[in-house]
Design a protein around this nucleic acid. Structure first.
Lengths: 252, 252
DNA sequence: GCTCCCGCCTGCCGTTACGGGAGGGTCAAG
DNA sequence: CTTGACCCTCCCGTAACGGCAGGCGGGAGC
């Protein structure tokens, strides 16, 4: 039940230097020392470190973490509750950022300019003065970037042109279906709605039916997107939106 | 189409000082200057700043962001794709942390000790050497903490004892239902399963049916949780698990 | 008992990404 | 023509470690 700095560092995924630092500032001082002066951490220290790690991940400065953890009014269970709450809030926020990216991606694909608010609303609006954020450097910085690079791969100019061409080809065929007089929930329209979804999935990101219907709503809700489709063929924005919804329902 | 530092800072949710800093290190130099030397940002600068903000949120160091953005091989759309990918990875990770917290909470509630790996597996295992993380300080640090405090509220010792008492009372009544011979998918058992879920929701965190069935699986899968329920009454872990699943299905 | 090598110790200086002034010009409104 | 809000350029400070130097400790093998 007693651990050395190295063991603790390894299991907790931090460096020995960090543990030294926490000891220096009194955030986490090991319960005991060996005769030779070696730090000895016990299970209670580990539990404290666990809370420290979670609060750190949530962006709390060390000083504040010390204050929170040393507050006699809140027990370990209270910290877990709070961490749970803060994590879910944070997940919601990241999901909003994902939606914002999807929005920006659609705009970029259709050459629709964004105004400043739209570029940053996900950052600024949450709080009157929400500032920058930092994150871990190994994992978030290099590794995940490489990983992302492997999977997203490099798009050459030709790839990009090909995507645009596919998109235009799809537009022509969709316009044809409209002209044929088939309703938006006809098999032909739904088939092309599905193809639209798969074009996004192959070219950009995994586009679930939920995301897809979100885009559909955007096409009728945002005049700039509406205009893009209306230019291809009048009535297309609404028609496409209905086809996407019909397709999503039929596949569920 | 031209903006001053102050306007950019406001809309992007950062400080003027930060923009000065980005200019100093050459990460984001405004396209032009006014006769008096005032920085003038245009829409292209804003787009670059948008990417900077997302990459920062994802934890990239500024130097690396500069390298990524100045890489001629990747266009704006490529950045959006990468950001989308990285964000979803990150959300998945946070969701794993949420699950880990729920696990720790159950363990804490039932007085089950955790071993070191369980305390930190969510941190260490993702990458051979994943290190610490920082986040924004206003939003994540003080404000959100206050917010969390308002909602989660303070639990006194009495609250804590009351929760334990309610939990034990529930255990007794659940054991009675078992003794009555009613099957696990009987209305009585399901009713108490629902009550179990609501106890968690009131006492700890919003416990969805999905989370609840996750806990149910844990009760039969993890011997320590199994033992806890088996001690109340033999067969209770399995019986409870089935009741929870039955209840979740019937409410869906 | 001696030797290695690995792990631990305590300084101490370096770095990143800004925060926060000081001291001084600028610009539009009244 | 002043006044308040904004802008400029230094410049020093800070948080949370990274990383190394220089030096002990300890147990595994000879």
């Amino acid at each position: 039940m007693a651990y050395t700095v190295g063991q603790v560092a390894k299991v907790a995924g931090i460096t020995v230097r960090t543990l030294h630092h926490y000891d220096e500032i009194g955030l986490l001082s090991p319960t005991g020392r060996s005769p030779a002066g070696y730090r000895r951490y016990d299970d209670a220290d580990l539990e404290r470190l666990q809370h420290i790690r979670y609060y750190r991940e949530l962006g709390f400065p060390l000083e504040e973490i010390a204050a929170i953890l040393d507050d006699p009014a809140s027990d370990p269970a209270a910290h877990l509750r709070r961490q749970h709450e803060l994590l879910t809030v944070r997940i919601r926020r990241l999901q909003e950022m994902v939606t914002a990216i999807e929005f920006a991606m659609e705009a970029s694909k259709l050459n629709i300019p964004l105004n400043p608010q739209e570029r940053f609303e996900v950052f600024g609006d949450a709080d009157p003065d929400a500032y920058a954020e930092e994150a871990e450097q190994r994992w978030g910085g290099i590794e995940a970037y490489r990983e992302s690079n492997r999977r997203v791969a490099r798009y050459t100019k030709e790839d990009w042109l090909r995507i645009k061409a596919e998109n235009e080809d799809w537009g022509r065929r969709f316009a044809e279906v409209m002209s044929s007089g088939a309703p938006a929930d006809s098999p032909q329209a739904m088939e092309l709605a599905e193809e639209h979804r798969q074009l996004i999935s192959r070219g950009f990101y995994e586009c679930s039916y939920e995301i897809h219907t979100g885009l559909a709503d955007m096409y009728v809700g945002d005049p700039r997107f509406t205009e893009y489709y209306e230019k291809i063929r009048p009535g297309m924005a609404t028609y496409l939106s209905e086809a996407i919804h019909a397709n999503a329902i039929s596949r569920a």
